[in-house]
Nucleic acid binder design. Sequence first.
DNA 1: TGAAACCCTAGTGGAAAACCGGAGTATACT
DNA 2: AGTATACTCCGGTTTTCCACTAGGGTTTCA
Lengths: 145, 145
Amino acid sequence: MELSCKSEYALLALLELADRYRSGEPLQIRQIAAQQNIPDRYLEQLLAMMRRGGLVRSQRGAKGGYILAREPWKITLFDVVTCLEGLDAQAKEVDVDLQTIEGSVICEIWQESYQAANTVLQKYTLQDLCEKRDARRQLDIMYYI
Amino acid sequence: MELSCKSEYALLALLELADRYRSGEPLQIRQIAAQQNIPDRYLEQLLAMMRRGGLVRSQRGAKGGYILAREPWKITLFDVVTCLEGLDAQAKEVDVDLQTIEGSVICEIWQESYQAANTVLQKYTLQDLCEKRDARRQLDIMYYI
DNA sequence: TGAAACCCTAGTGGAAAACCGGAGTATACT
DNA sequence: AGTATACTCCGGTTTTCCACTAGGGTTTCA
């Protein structure tokens, strides 16, 4: 479970959407991309995935854009990464039967390790992320003075 | 921290070396490769990495081969994966300073998740792996009868 | 001396990740 | 109604990385 560009871009975008969430106004791809320095056509794909995954809602047409599908404290980082990377995760389960004993023993331990990582990601929500960011911003201002 | 071919091959090889450890005799690349169905020239590179990482010792020349550098219960799975994938891990630390606040907040959480995964890997040694394998073998025999 | 083994470096093929472009469709505003 | 805006779908391109291959060395033992 490494931090790919995909996941990072997605989280940055969701962070922007979380900020905007209370207003109820949608936010455009272009704006998010400009704000966070993300290639816009790529971000488009990621947002489409997250829409299919039920994380965001889209509004088409003029004055359209994206809105968080539910409250920022109801979306965990685990939700995000599984939505993005989890689509091809089922494909790996194919040839488990023709594995050696050594292979399956190793595989089990990896599952356990994987599980531990996911538990951490389940602990944090977008809300938490926003708060951490704000706290960090305050801290940076203090240091600057 | 996903299970790459590299790590799996390396663990399988180390498992063979662990079996052989008590005898003090070295084991050749070819034999390991044949036993575990690993491309031998590739395994050669992995063993070279593990030698540089201090996990195995090599003996050159005829009747040479590889030996575990220390006892099987003193090598954790964490040691193995960091030895193999950890070489380019420092390269990522380069441009940390020019990161945004959002980026570093995300990065921190990823570190925590990573850490959790590593803690699991630190818990298991080659010895544990061997024992799990043997237990599984016994179990398979029982089922077969 | 020669065979058996490790040692080092470079290069290749293919697949996945990251990214781009164009044509289509829905929506709001005038 | 018409137009501008923004999402939607889908195919293509570029880049990067992994698994693997290859060849020419060096050391050791018999």
